[in-house]
Design a protein around this nucleic acid. Structure first.
Lengths: 114, 114
DNA sequence: TTATTATATAAGCAAATACGAATATAAGGT
DNA sequence: ACCTTATATTCGTATTTGCTTATATAATAA
């Protein structure tokens, strides 16, 4: 199998999106488990519109999948993204969000749907 | 050896810097071989001040080393950077700059100092 | 010294960005 | 139908960004 290269412009777009600490942490969290907006608001300490706007950019770039479950909209990492290996390489170099998500659980702030 | 994680803020800074197609290509080129400013100007088709300003940002972030040789200032990738593995992972996913640098050579536009 | 070449810096500006406030939409419960 | 909760969108704004133009600095050669 021949190695596929990303286009420089496409890679730059992904890196620019991940080059913001809020969005980078969103990716850290959804890399552990899908998250709904209110969980990310809680985890990141920003306003709901701010989080929604970041999520929209990540979704527009196909880095995230969106799935509504009742009241909530859950976001998950898109493992089919052409740059997924680069994305995972980046996230692997960071402390993942597992611990923070567990703290959310302990405070009964996690949303469980199914 | 215990795995060292980057801080989210530090990683975000590196990604933001690489999230610009001009700077990302600068990194592609210096990853092949050290380059002077005028070579990068030629390769990237931007003004000398524009390139200088991009180089300064990369240098300030310690992603690049600077070395003067006579008239010229050569920039090379800093292999000691804490995020170097992430950086290399990104560059490995891109077509490297070898071919474009060879074309420069063929047009006698490469600067050879030592 | 003066001229030339390579690079850096400063100033100004248009475009992009990240945010909050206010408002709109969507879903479920009463 | 109404209310509440979760999310999205719109708008205004302060900040940042990437570039150009003009100028300054650094190194070498004549």
């Amino acid at each position: 199998m021949e190695k596929m290269y990303l286009k420089v412009e496409d890679a730059a777009q992904v890196l620019k999106l991940m080059g913001d600490k809020t969005r980078l942490s969103i990716m850290r969290f959804v890399n552990v488990d899908e998250c709904c907006v209110c969980e990310l608001v809680e985890l990141l300490g920003l306003s709901q519109p701010a989080i929604s706007q970041h999520l929209r950019k990540l979704k527009d770039a196909k880095l995230l999948n969106e799935q509504r479950k009742g009241h909530w909209v859950f976001y998950s990492i898109n493992k089919e993204h052409p740059a997924i290996e680069v994305v995972q390489g980046i996230l692997d170099a960071l402390p993942n969000g597992k611990q923070e998500l567990e703290e959310l659980s302990n405070n009964n702030l996690r949303i469980i749907c199914d």
